[in-house]
Structure formats: C-alpha cells, structure tokens
Computed example of a mutant assay.
Amino acid sequence: MSNGWAIVTGGARRLGKSIALELARAGYNLIIHYNAAQAEAEQTCSEVQSLGREAWAYSADLRDVAAIETMFQTIGERCGTLAVLVNSAADFPRTPIGSISQQTWDDLVALNQRAPFFCAQAAAKLMPEHGVIVNIADVGGEVPWPSFVPYGMTKAALIMMTRGLALALAPNVRVGAVGPGVALLPDGWQEDSNSLNKIPLKRLGVPEDIAKAVRFIVESPYFTGETIFVDGGRRWA
C-alpha cells in the first residue's frame, strides 16, 4: 500500500536523491524532477523502484514558470493527486560583492526563490487533503555569509514563504522547512579543520541527516509553519 505520490525537485542527485530515497522508504511513490541530469534521475528512479515503490522522472527548467505549470499539469493527469512536494532544487554560487551581474541575480532568485513558490502553488491544487510541502532552506537564511549574500537572501525568503504558506494553505496542506548546515559539500570544496571545530557535534552532516528531518515533517500531523535547522549546532558556536 502506497502513501501516495511525492515529488522532489532536484531529486536526481546529492541531497535531493537522499530525500527521495527516504520518502520511498516511508512508503511514497516518487516523481524525480531534474533539469539536465537525466542519467542520474533514471538511476534514482531505479533505486526507488528497488525499494518497492513506483517512480518516474520529469525534466523541467524551474526558472520558467510556464514549465512549472506544465509539470504539475502532467502530474495531475498521470497521478491524480499529490501527497508531498519537496522543494529541493537550488543553486549555490559564490557571489562576492562587486562581482554580481544582473543575470546571476535573476537566475538565482528565479530558481531558489520564485520556483519554490510556484511549485507550491501548483502542488497545493493537487492536494485535496493532508498534503505536505517541505522547503529546503539553509542556515544561510539566518546567518549572513559575505560571499553568498544573494543566496542567503533567497533562503531567508524561503523561510518566510514557509510561514506564509502554512497559514494560507491550512488546514488541508501543512508547510515546513528544513535548514541544513554543511551536509554535503559542493563539488570541489573542502571543509578545513578549523571550520569543523566550530561545529559542536564535531562532524559534518550527511544527506541522510537532512532526509530524516524531511521525513519527520511529512509524518508529523501537527507540524506546520516552522523551520528545523539541522547543522550540528553550528549556528550557536
């Protein structure tokens, strides 16, 4: 027996993949959204299917609102209703002040901030009752990082969006957010030992830490409007 259909944006790889697999273990069938990572999306679908759940992949550029609307129209036609949306797709570019172009700004806001809103708006129409939307925020939405100011602004907006949608969509749809700390370093990055020592739990997070927090929100019927920060206590160090 399935708990229904869930979609994870950016679900083909990295954190999104871990979230998708955790939801499959929780009993959900999965729609794996991706932009260009087709082979990885198909691999993730195979891994979901190996857990006994259905899965299919869908490609869309979430910077295009029309593409978002078409994606959810397709989901409605194919699945009927939707139980869970996880807004995980995002970009994390280093943007030192003085080097930021309008195109960089527009692309970042379109993917990290505008897309989750329009995904949520479209998904809610497919959630007749007891739907759940989980936004993947970031500690950067609360803690300022000088080389990532626009990114932090988009994640701060996502936290506020979570609160507003929780009120606007209640009682049929619950909305929560997870704010990861360092759970999966970007390709080519390394975390130095000094930074590691600033984490009270003395270790980097792993994607499964974040995925389990997403599952907690999905399975907690009295949870809405809040953001869970999963950073090993680093915000307070």
Rank of each mutant, 00 (worst) to 15 (best):
I100C: 11
R78F: 00
W145V: 12
A57R: 10
P116L: 09
V86G: 00
V230P: 09
F148M: 14
A20F: 07
A170G: 11
P116K: 13
E77C: 07
A177F: 02
I75F: 05
V86C: 02
I159A: 13
F148A: 14
S59Q: 11
E22L: 08
S2H: 07
A55C: 11
D209C: 06
A170N: 08
L204A: 07
E129Q: 15
G16R: 10
G232V: 03
P221V: 09
N3G: 02
W56A: 03
K212M: 11
L196W: 08
S2L: 03
D187G: 05
T44Y: 02
I199Q: 04
L184D: 11
D192T: 12
P93D: 05
A66H: 10
S2W: 06
Q121Y: 08
A26C: 10
G205R: 01
A122I: 03
M160Q: 15
I217P: 00
E42F: 01
A237F: 12
F92P: 01
K198Q: 15
W236E: 12
R25W: 00
W105R: 10
A41T: 04
P116W: 02
L82D: 05
G164Q: 14
Y222M: 12
G152W: 06
G188T: 10
L15I: 15
N35F: 08
G176S: 12
D64I: 11
F223L: 15
L62F: 01
Q43E: 15
L23T: 11
L30M: 14
R174S: 09
A67T: 09
N112D: 13
L82G: 04
L204G: 07
Q38A: 12
D138Y: 05
L82T: 07
E22N: 10
L23C: 09
M160C: 09
F72K: 04
I199K: 11
E22C: 11
A6E: 00
Y151T: 03
Q121P: 02
I199R: 13
I75G: 01
Q102G: 02
R13K: 15
I136C: 05
L82A: 08
E42G: 01
G16M: 10
F117H: 13
S147R: 12
L185F: 03
T81Y: 03
S50R: 11
T81W: 04
T224I: 09
G205Q: 04
G4W: 02
T81A: 13
W105F: 14
Y28G: 01
M71Q: 11
D231M: 04
M160F: 12
G98Y: 12
Y34D: 03
W105S: 09
M127C: 02
L62V: 03
W105P: 05
F229V: 15
V143E: 10
V48N: 06
S220K: 05
F118I: 04
